[in-house]
Nucleic acid binder design. Structure first.
Lengths: 306, 306
DNA sequence: GGAACGCATAAGCTGCGCCTATGTCTTCTC
DNA sequence: GAGAAGACATAGGCGCAGCTTATGCGTTCC
């Protein structure tokens, strides 16, 4: 499931950061300064980068340096990587500032994984001074934290919202039924029906997981269907994907979690006839006390996003 | 426009790769072996990672090591980063193997930037021996290369397809009108009409760019509108975004190019009334000679993708 | 024609991170 | 219940990657 190790050339992102800075600032020297390094150091790293790629990425002139066509291409790929790394950094910063931040956020896994980092970056760009503390747990724990005042704002993925909390939908999440390409279902003509899905044992997360709960609820509401016993219970999304890819059986996961595998073809997604596998992701906060300060800003960002 | 430099902790992805391997393999030692490093080296790097994050990411036991909740979270953010880095690596590998690969691909900028890396990864996972050579240029150059036999398969973004080429749509691309948040248009109530857009000077790419061409064509077909002279002509997408963000004026860009800025709020997107700003991205190859080998596989991947 | 700017080269040094070897603890097996 | 196997930590030593300062060369602009 995990792809082969990254080549040396992309393990360290410094060179690519420099490349982007050169594109923006127009000279190697200025790029170096913007990264608090000497001009020769930047020059050497960029030269090294060109050697790795095997192509000229820069057009050096007496008036400055511009990117070549290949350079633009590499820069655009690099920017996507650096953005992902920024998300990672934002997430880490939020974990790091344990419980002493200005905004204490409790978020369920799906939100914390796929949505929150971008929001945090937007929040910081609105006010660089804001310190964020993140606590991740399942939806019930999130509700508890918010009610207890341990968190200023929470994000949940459960269909119901605990009493005492105000809620507002900030995004929708779609669940996807996936199988390995070698699975019999991958090539069948007709999409499985809800009854069939309910009767099938799945690779699934432990009881209490928001995703599992949402699936059970959708089937129950559709036609009072009860779900079959899991084929295998594992503790993380990664493990589920590994099991499905390994041919153990089908699983239902957030569509966001499998987009890469779908385009890579390592997983195949199936629609389920007449079943609504959509759920809403909601912000929650204590009823009666309107959100203030950075928590309020965060909600605004979340509402605008996506 | 470019965000602040990445913190040290995310510049080097090795530690995160190890973290993912631990999640998959269940022990630090095995993860180390899968990365061709000694067990103490891996152990030290992971310890360093935990120090950076300031939280326990691993639960070490005599039977092996598992990820903690925070570890799962970091791993999922890290995986997104590593996937982006894999795209980057795949693109670089294709640039590197200049003109001696098994498949020679010519691709216009939009395709090469946003779609091709994933396709290349899928192609390699289908047959690891395949070597790819990539040449990027505008749509006209791509057509020329394919017709001249310099490329086995091409990808273009232009509305017309040169004669002598077979074509097949592999994806759609949406153009987006964007302005800075401070721009007067950002807060107006009604969406601009096509006539208004045509009469407005934009920040744009040089004449001959596929995006610029597509916009001009859409306006002409809509109501025979001619486009105003550009406000500023720059040579790269990055430079356009910088100019727009800096308040120079509006621009029209591929929606894929601005998604980050939109969620971050640094750019604002406007719909244009009654104007279809959609274009198709097409694979092209010499008419009469059906695609064979890896080029054929690539087309299949592209058709399945997205 | 000289000053300013931009990039490359040279030389020396610091320190990060790797490896091998070894120690400690747990768990499994018979 | 003892021994073996597996897993992680610690210690010590070393190699090399990459940084800094100083300097040189070329181009552009006034």
């Amino acid at each position: 499931m995990s792809s082969r190790p990254l080549p040396r050339s992309v393990r360290d992102l410094t060179g690519y950061e420099l490349l982007l800075s050169v594109a923006e600032l127009g000279s190697i020297g200025q790029a170096a300064r913007s990264h608090d390094m000497s001009q020769p150091a930047a020059s050497a790293r960029l030269r090294q980068l060109e050697a790795d790629v095997g192509t000229a990425l820069l057009e050096r002139g007496a008036r400055g340096t511009r990117l070549s066509t290949a350079g633009e291409l590499v820069a655009s790929w690099a920017q996507a990587t650096i953005e992902a790394a920024s998300d990672l950094a934002a997430g880490i910063a939020a974990l790091r500032a344990d419980r002493h931040g200005h905004v204490r956020i409790a978020a369920s896994l799906t939100v914390a994984e796929y949505l929150l980092p971008r929001w945090l970056i937007a929040l910081r760009s609105a006010d660089p001074e804001t310190v964020v503390a993140l606590d991740s747990g399942n939806s019930a724990e999130v509700a508890t934290n918010v009610l207890a005042g341990t968190a200023d704002i929470g994000f949940v993925e459960s269909p119901e919202v605990a009493s005492g909390l105000s809620a507002r939908e900030v995004a929708r999440d779609e669940l996807a039924l996936v199988v390995a390409p070698s699975h019999p279902w991958a090539n069948r003509r007709r999409e499985p029906r809800a009854e069939e899905l309910a009767a099938t044992s799945l690779v699934s997360r432990e009881r209490g997981s928001g995703t599992r709960w949402a699936l059970e609820r959708a089937l129950r509401e559709h036609a009072g269907l009860e779900t079959a016993e899991p084929l295998l219970e594992v503790s993380s999304t990664t493990a589920i994907k590994a099991a499905v890819t390994g041919g153990i059986g089908p699983a239902v996961l957030s569509a966001r979690a499998v987009s890469t595998e779908l385009t890579a073809g390592t997983l195949v997604r199936l629609e389920v006839a007449e079943l609504d596998l959509t759920r809403s992701l909601r912000a929650v906060w204590p009823e009666g006390t309107p959100l203030r300060g950075p928590a309020r800003d965060l909600l605004a960002i979340a509402l605008r996003g996506e």
